[in-house]
């Protein structure tokens, strides 16, 4: 058994392109599942499969740091939070019809149109990078910005991009406080906030929208 992976002969067979297309295919299929599946919990699971494949694609595109981060942040935190939200709000056993008659076609039409537009711009443009790359390579910063190794990312992150890095931490702190404030009972808010917010069920289903359940 070859004792180390990285001296395996890569170039004889385009394994990474093949892998890329597998990941892309699985990602797109699970993406479709997310939008079409009846039960939201299954949509959640499909979304997680999609995130994992995206992490695979990042690894293939030469930056494993981003792949690990994606796994950690998206699959570990955001997806778990979404699943928690689904559990809190969804009644498991009675799947409800989720779209009215005309709505899917409008959405379909809009997104297909957008995709056509994007596809045209992408395939027609010629990305002439050769000239551009070496012109910026000799720029002032000591870090070699062309090699995507983790140490370079770290250095680049903290020297030229130090300010946005701190800003991001402020944003996350603000979200933390906002989320906690939202989760508390609203009856703390001043009395004139209309119907008491924590009445278990809103007094009357708004007559305008017929109950669709």
């Amino acid at each position: 058994m070859p004792f180390s992976m990285d001296i395996y002969a890569w170039d004889s067979f385009p394994i990474d392109t093949l892998l890329f297309w597998c990941f892309a295919a699985v990602m797109l299929i699970s993406g479709l599942c997310v939008v079409t599946v009846k039960r939201v919990f299954h949509a959640g699971i499909a979304m997680i499969v999609c995130f994992v494949c995206a992490a695979g694609i990042y690894a293939l595109l030469g930056c494993p740091f981003m792949a690990a981060l994606q796994l950690l942040v998206y699959v570990g935190a955001i997806a778990t939070m979404l699943l928690f939200a689904v559990m809190l709000t969804d009644k498991m056993m009675e799947p409800r019809p989720n779209t009215t008659f005309f709505q899917p076609f409008m959405g379909l039409f809009a997104s297909v149109l957008l995709f056509g537009l994007l596809w045209l711009t992408v395939s027609s443009s010629k990305f002439g990078f050769a000239g551009w790359a070496n012109s910026t390579a000799a720029s002032s910063s000591a870090i070699d910005i062309t090699s995507l190794s983790t140490t370079n990312i770290g250095l680049r992150l903290l020297t030229p991009y130090a300010v946005p890095f701190e800003l991001i931490s402020v944003i996350i702190l603000a979200t933390l406080i906002a989320a906690i404030a939202l989760a508390r009972k609203e009856d703390r808010s001043p009395a004139d906030s209309g119907t008491p917010a924590d009445a278990p069920a809103s007094p009357a289903e708004p007559a305008s929208t017929p109950a669709k359940e």
Binding site: F3, S4, F65, A68, L71, V75, A77, T80, L83
Partner: peptide, 24 residues
Amino acid sequence: VTFAFADLNVGLLYIVAVPSLTVF
């Protein structure tokens, strides 16, 4: 040369990231 299945240069981050799958 380290003898590992694949000595990733983000080894420890990968080790912290994968258990999030078990959480799910």
